[in-house]
Amino acid sequence: MLTLQCPYCGVMADETELHAEGEAHIKRFGPGSSDEDFETYLFERKNPKGVHFERWRHTGGCGKFFHAARSTMTLEVYGTYPAQTLEPPKELIDAIKAKHPDWEGYK
């Protein structure tokens, strides 16, 4: 059972306090978008063995959505950060790259 630190209220929260909300940094495609883009938006999700960026919600706490970068292999959590961003913080990306030089990036 994971523990993640909520970047809003600072609580180290047990997974039972949290709700998983799928992959992070999905770009929304709406009316006017191509079938391919829309299909990607709706259905295509990563399932990496390793570094993964996810959305979580602190449902049993402050109610805020946030993002977490963690390894699906080792369960290491590289960091959590607020959801109001289009891309992960640079320091986080750098830290992950330093640990995993072969990492292909979050996109």
Binding site: R28, R57, Q84
Partner: peptide, 13 residues
């Protein structure tokens, strides 16, 4: 409620 919060917090903040 959660669905509305999701869009307000994560898309149109």
């Amino acid at each position: 409620h959660a669905w509305m919060e999701d869009w307000l917090q994560c898309e149109w903040w």
